[in-house]
Design a binder for these strands. Structure first.
Length: 469
DNA sequence: ACAATGGTCC
DNA sequence: ACTCGGACCATTGTA
């Protein structure tokens, strides 16, 4: 089955300028109908920009795979979700009562404005060190409330309320609402309690996919309530769910693009990268690395990918600014190739006005040369992040195509179903009798989907529901 | 409708 | 005062 012309055009436009909103199809609005001739023009531009391989070998093969994933959907346990919803409802009303009692009046807890009034005016909680918002109200976000925990007993209940309300309103209830409601009619396969997310292929600046209606790429995992949400995603009778995630794919990409010998060596020896980093920046032998040291190193590793500055690193770790600065300096003296690669990448971006990853996927950076340092710095962070995030995205997209091909080669279409892609992770629904064999092959396809300077490592797990993965 | 605030994920 | 990349979505409150 061939890819729709309009889809090709959408993808082509997006590849040329991924941040430009115009590639998305709009309905009623006065939007020029694009003639078939324009695709030829767009494809010519793709070739000129070195984007044609990404277009043809990564994006186009993915179109039908994503359509299939949308049609199949993932099964949710609706009875369980209904119970969970009423359990949450009870929890919410209990918390509401306590909060009203402690505040002495009824108000809308969901309103940051009203909440701020209650906390800092009515209850007269000390405001020292509390940020104020644009609107003038004091902040009431999680970080802030944590600071207030010792100042008033109500805070604990607010925190609990926030969590429970979030779970119910953002996940549990929408999932119930969206079950059996695919976006396209032809995807409907009757009432079987499946949720049909849409993976948007042209929705990000870096090349990643996004997911909406519902977004299944941000289902909770950390909290206990979050795990209960994950339990709602189940395999059909006779099937299991199986998850495969790339281990440290972005840092492996960073090791590759920077050519950093220390980082490369760490991955080639399959060592714990955060521990290695900690050992380097703290100048202690591996055996002397504590969990706190590893944790700080982990933050720093991610920070480097995101272009994090000293302030953000300090805030994330609790170090003061000077200490944070010292650690960052130490990091770059240890991983000097990483520093050099970042500088080179920014330099190049300033010259040509865009960045590109190893496959030629690009992102335009119109403000990287702006005099406004705020904007320029933001563009610089994007410049050093996109080649990493964007290559990781390419890899998983290629892996999806490889796995799809493998499934067809084995005639497993009815036994192995690709359901979800969550940036560095793929989730399948697999018939029991094929579980073991197919899991080995999927893992292998993913690990061999792309050649980096270091191995790609994929961890796998299976279970009857998502929380077991 | 849209901005502001807040929260969940990788 | 503020510098952490990429997404989606719920709710409130104002226009």
């Amino acid at each position: 089955m061939a890819v729709e012309l309009s889809k090709k055009i959408e993808i082509a436009r997006w590849l040329i300028d991924p941040d430009h909103p115009s590639h998305e199809a709009t309905d009623g609005e006065a939007r020029q109908q694009i003639s078939p001739n324009d695709l030829a023009l767009l494809e010519k531009r793709l070739k000129e920009a070195g984007l044609f391989k990404v277009y043809e070998e990564i994006e186009l093969p993915l179109v039908e795979i994503l359509e299939e994933m949308h049609k199949i959907g993932i099964k949710v346990n609706l009875e369980y979700l209904a119970e969970l919803s009423s359990e949450l409802e009870k929890e919410i009303s209990a918390l509401v009562k306590k909060i009203y009692k402690l505040s002495g009046k009824e108000f809308n807890i969901n309103s940051p404005k009203q909440l701020s009034e209650i906390l800092f005016k009515d209850l007269k909680i000390e405001t020292s060190g509390i940020l104020t918002r644009k609107t003038g109200a004091f902040a009431t976000d999680y970080e802030t409330l944590l600071k207030l925990k010792d100042r008033h007993p109500i805070v604990e209940f607010i925190l609990n309320y926030r969590e429970v309300f979030k779970i119910k309103s953002t996940y549990v209830d929408p999932l119930r609402e969206l079950a059996d409601k695919p976006t396209f009619a032809e995807a409907s396969a009757g009432k079987n309690g499946r949720v049909h997310t849409t993976f948007v292929q042209t929705g990000t600046g870096t090349g990643r996919l996004s997911s909406n209606n519902p977004n299944l790429q941000n289902i909770p995992i950390l909290s206990e309530w979050g795990k209960k949400v994950r339990k709602a995603f189940v395999a059909e009778t006779g099937f299991s769910l199986a998850a495969f995630d790339y281990s440290q794919i972005e840092l492996r990409v960073l090791a590759t693009v920077s050519g950093d010998p220390k980082m490369t060596k760490a991955f080639n020896n399959d060592l714990d990268i955060h521990k290695i980093t900690a050992s380097n920046i703290y100048n202690v032998p591996l055996e002397k690395v504590t969990s706190e040291m590893r944790s700080a190193a982990k933050t720093l590793n991610f920070g480097v990918i995101y272009g994090m500055g000293p302030d953000a690193f300090a805030r994330a770790t609790g170090f003061n600014r000077a200490e944070a600065q010292k650690f960052i300096q130490e990091y770059f003296s240890d991983f000097i190739y990483v520093k050099r690669w970042q500088e080179k990448t920014i330099q190049k971006a300033k010259e040509v006005g865009y960045v590109e990853n190893l496959n030629g996927r690009r992102r335009l950076l119109p403000n990287i040369n702006w005099p406004n340092r705020r904007f320029a710095a933001e563009a610089e962070r994007i410049a050093t992040n996109m080649p990493i995030q964007g290559l990781a995205a390419d890899i998983i997209k290629l892996a999806m195509t490889c796995v799809d091909r493998m499934i067809k080669k084995n005639k497993w279409q009815n036994k192995v179903r690709m359901l979800l892609t969550i940036h560095d992770e793929l989730i399948f629904e697999i018939k029991e009798d094929t579980l073991k064999d197919s899991m080995m092959l999927i893992q292998s396809e993913m690990e061999n989907a792309y050649k980096l300077a270091v191995p790609l490592k994929v961890d796998k797990a299976s279970g009857k529901n998502w929380s077991e993965l």
